[in-house]
């Protein structure tokens, strides 16, 4: 099979694909979570796993959370802009 698969390129695609393709939605989710600002603390804390029945307390998020959410969304937008730039540059 080796002559038919460029393993190097494939590995790069898989690694970069997981980092970008899974990372961007994750950042987006993190951004949302920070924005909602409930008291669960760290995003992946055990408390957050408590289940969906709890009514979320929509307290206003603090500045730190807002900044964090802003950074998350900015990275997502940046990734889209980079994608468009890639298409325009003819790299496809």
């Amino acid at each position: 099979m080796t002559e038919f698969i460029e393993w190097g390129s494939l590995a790069q695609v898989v690694v970069a694909g997981v980092v970008v393709g899974a990372g961007i939605p994750t950042l987006f989710a993190l951004g949302l979570r920070l924005l909602v600002g409930h008291d669960a603390g760290a995003p992946v804390s055990a408390d957050a796993a408590g289940g969906g029945v709890r009514v979320a307390t929509r307290t206003r998020p603090g500045t730190a959370r807002l900044v964090g959410a802003g950074v998350c969304f900015a990275v997502c937008v940046g990734a889209v802009v980079a994608g468009i730039g890639f298409l325009v540059s003819g790299g496809h």
Binding site: A22, T26, L32, A40, V44
Partner: peptide, 16 residues
């Protein structure tokens, strides 16, 4: 890629 992304997102948005 999509399964990893979905799983992470589902985990992060749980309880929201």
């Amino acid at each position: 890629v999509a399964a990893t992304g979905t799983w992470l997102v589902a985990r992060l948005t749980r309880g929201l």
